[in-house]
Design a binder for these strands. Structure first.
Lengths: 221, 221
DNA sequence: GCCCTCAAACTAGCGGTGTAAGTTTTCATC
DNA sequence: GATGAAAACTTACACCGCTAGTTTGAGGGC
């Protein structure tokens, strides 16, 4: 086939299809040939639109990051903004857990990731945190969110009672985790996030100044 | 070469060499043939000792996890034990950052990871935490540690001032992060861990009961 | 309206990958 | 000493990312 009347591929179509394949079959199952086949095209044609496979993955990762809402810092107290951002971030990653290992390797040069870092850092500094502290807080929350999306603690366990009971005295109920994955992961995330924010608020009072009273629950959104 | 008088390979030697190669060149650079070559052997010979390449990686991951000290819970208050465990866990992962993406995908059936989960969960329940809470706390800390080892927030930035200043108003200093990687990552980890533990202590007081007074700083170890 | 250049697909192929299959020789056991 | 497992080997398959060169339609300039 020569050059078609209408281009078969666009960067957006490649990225969307790649994400769908990764969601369905995992990161390792994405090959340029399989991706091309899903697009009705031969493998090397992708290289007319992306320089390398990694460039495709970068674009996929950035498309996931782009769905995170970072606007909270303009409208809310820093504690509330951090909380909502963290949940939004987690939601974006949890919707595509298979890309997290790739995505978690740093913002690099991906624009959506950098825009997010910019918004969070800026919001914290504006709230009075010293710049170095703001960096640490942003990083710490990123650690927590990325770890939670990546690990899916409960997903790691297997639905086999024998396996754990035999050697691990306290894990006799661990096989049940496999079935309650979502509730366990969400509960752990909620607990950890609340604890983190509680601790940060204390640190703020100790080193920056008094906290503004929190807006009433169920704020402006 | 037929079967040699003395076996050239052992599982331990394979695992140790694989870990060294991963540390040196990254996870993606480990192939069965390169690993075999480093062991003075042909590629397929590895399959006399491991069923698949993933089985080798599992063993590598478990050898890293095995260096985490989980004994603190027998000798310390739960807060202090959690803190020391988290630091030890982080240290183990940070020593081999390239294996973290693989390792972070869940304890699965790896014995060292399961033994660690067992120790942490048991320690928390013994300290009075309700079982469901203990699960959440263990998971939350795992998220944080895994995320911190995986992400290495600072590593993600590039040493190029132009790149950030142009589009991200608050990231004008971000290129400096690349050079201060270790201090940034450790600072973020320390801050986040302290905040987490602070928040957990508050939660404990609210839902379980009064906290034992903390032992004087610089305890029995 | 023609021509030139570029773009977007193609085909062929290189070197590398995980691993299955079968072979050979040695060691350990009866 | 025969037997069988173990541990290396060689060969081979299907797939991988990617390069090179080819073909042909699309779009712009004269």
């Amino acid at each position: 086939m020569p050059r078609p009347r209408q281009a078969l591929l666009t960067r957006d179509r490649i990225v969307a299809t790649a994400l769908a394949l990764i969601d369905a079959d995992g990161l390792a199952a994405l090959s340029t040939r399989r991706l091309a086949a899903a697009l009705g095209v031969q493998g090397p044609s992708l290289y007319n639109h992306f320089a390398t496979k990694d460039a495709i993955l970068d674009a996929v990762a950035d498309s996931v990051t782009a769905t995170v809402d970072t606007g909270w810092f303009a409208r809310h107290d820093w504690r509330e903004a951090l909380r909502r951002w963290a949940w939004s971030y987690r939601e974006a990653l949890a919707a595509h857990p298979n890309v997290v290992p790739y995505l978690a390797q740093g913002p690099g040069r991906r624009p959506a990731a950098l825009a997010m870092a910019d918004a969070v850092y800026g919001g914290l500094v504006r709230a009075g945190w010293p710049p170095a502290r703001a960096t640490h807080i942003g990083a710490a929350l990123r650690y927590f969110v990325a770890g939670s999306a990546l690990g899916s603690f409960a997903r790691g366990f297997v639905e086999d009672p024998e396996l754990y009971a035999a050697h691990y005295p306290h894990l006799t109920q661990a096989h049940r985790l496999a079935g309650r994955q979502r509730s366990v992961d969400e509960g752990a995330f909620a607990l950890g996030l609340d604890a983190l924010l509680h601790g940060l608020a204390a640190e703020y009072q100790r080193t920056v100044g008094p906290l503004a009273p929190l807006e009433p629950a169920g704020g402006s959104e």
